[in-house]
Each structure stands twice: as structure tokens, then as C-alpha cells.
Design a binder for these strands. Structure first.
Lengths: 128, 128
DNA sequence: CAGTATCCGTGTTGATACTG
DNA sequence: CAGTATCAACACGGATACTG
């Protein structure tokens, strides 16, 4: 069924943007950050991302995100032929590099949230 | 009409993720990168982003993105009371910091696109 | 457990037309 | 020029049910 990445990326888009969008995608960001810390199993990863504070990923979206990132050579999928099934996800070298960039961004965000919140108050106040 | 940022961010999401999503949003990324270089007027910015290789931003989306980033204290809007109207957009200090992070990510992407493309080929080939 | 398949609501997006 | 307003299409994302 062709993991084409995401419907949004029409063929006419330059590869550079494509990769950027995968990495900065809603769940891509969180997957990369989570896997940067350690490898996870599927459901484990779902819970890990859910506990970050936001809404939890649906299985569908997590699957899709993982497939896209695997196809892009960032995520390594290790499916063990056991029952019950066990699949471990980890980062490749490429993925680790990507994760570093994304993590830097996330850390910066963390440091600056307060300033953003303050800015928003001022903005909203100024036009009410 | 309340620039609430983007419908997706339900109230129940932690601020940290909110900011992250604004900064990593499809057009947010490109706006920050463009403005990191120099300030732009509205239409000028539209063209600048369009010439990056992908599809061009609609006026609506550019407006929305700029408003969100302005509200978050990253973009400065300077509307001159002349005819015809002239509005210049530039980054605040906060915005410049954000842009640096995002730019680092974009530059990394640029350096690694080839590896990603190669990975995709292997992936696709492996299941055909 | 780790997915896949399907349906379906709704948010995001983009054309288009209009205003100051 | 720099937007705003409105509308329609469609992609995204989630809930659910099912499989190996």
C-alpha cells in the first residue's frame, strides 16, 4: 500500500522540504525526541509520547509516522519473530543526528515558553 | 476574531507543545528562515517562500502564520500609514533565537537529503 | 502485542472575491 | 499593497473492528 509519506507532499515538492516536513511533523518531532533517549517498543512508545503532556497518538498515526521515518532512514525497526509479537524501534545514525537538531529546538522552546506566554498576554490585552 | 493560533491546539495541550507546533508548523518554519535573513514586506515574503522550491503560500495561510508568530512574540509587524499600504515583517530577539534553531535543522536537512533519498530507494526496493 | 483496514468528522488549506 | 471574508475540497487524524 505504499508508504508514500503523507498525502500532502505532492510530487512537485523539492526533497529538501519533504524531509523537513517529515522531521517537523506533529508526531515525528515527538517520536524522534523519545527515541533519542532510548529504544522503545510500539505501545511503550505510544505511552511515552502520551505522557509528554499532550494528547496521545493514535495507533494509526504512530504507525504511519514510524513508517515514514523508517523509510527516510532515520528509524530502525527490529521485529522479533516471537509470540506475542515484539517490535523494537530505535534511531539510526541519521536519525540520531536529526533527533539532536529537533531536541535542541525543543529544549530552546522549553527555556522560552514563559516569554512566549508573556508576549501572548500583551498581544491579547492590546486588542481587547 | 481571536487569532487562536490554530484550531488543532485544543485548550488541553501544554504550552510547550503549542509553541513547538507553531515554530515547526509548515509555514512557520519557512517564515522564520526567510525572516532570519532580512525583513520582508508581505507579498515579498510570499514570493520569497514560494521560490524556495515548493508550492507557494496562500495569502490566507501567510497571514495566519504571521499573526500566530506575532502573537507568540517572534515576529514584529511594522505597518506604515502610507498609501499604498506598506507593512514590514521582521524577527524579534525571541524570533531570531527560534529561527536559529530552525535554521540549524534546515541546514542539517540540506546536508543529509541525499542519504535520505538513498535510504528511501533501498526501502522501496526491498518491498517490491 | 503489533499492527492493518475502514469509516467518518472536522480542521486545515487554498480559490475567489472583496475592502481600505 | 496588504489584507479580510467566505466557501468548498480534501487531507489528516482518530475511533473502531479485525488479523497474525
Amino acid at each position: 500500500m505504499a508508504v508514500s509519506s503523507s498525502g500532502a507532499d505532492a510530487e512537485r515538492m523539492c526533497p529538501h522540504r519533504l524531509v523537513l516536513e517529515h522531521v517537523t511533523s506533529r508526531w515525528g518531532v515527538l517520536v524522534l525526541i523519545a527515541l533519542a533517549e532510548r529504544s522503545y517498543r510500539f505501545s511503550e512508545l505510544r505511552r511515552a509520547i502520551g505522557s509528554t503532556g499532550g494528547r496521545t497518538v493514535s495507533e494509526k498515526m504512530l504507525t504511519q509516522t514510524l513508517q515514514i521515518l523508517e523509510r527516510d532512514g532515520m528509524v530502525h525497526r527490529d521485529a522479533k519473530p516471537v509470540i506475542p509479537p515484539r517490535v523494537d524501534y530505535s534511531l539510526t545514525d541519521l536519525g540520531r543526528e536529526a533527533a539532536e537538531q529537533v531536541r535542541a529546538l525543543a529544549l530552546w522552546t522549553d527555556r522560552r515558553v514563559d516569554d512566549v506566554l508573556k508576549a501572548r498576554e500583551k498581544y491579547d490585552e492590546a486588542r481587547s
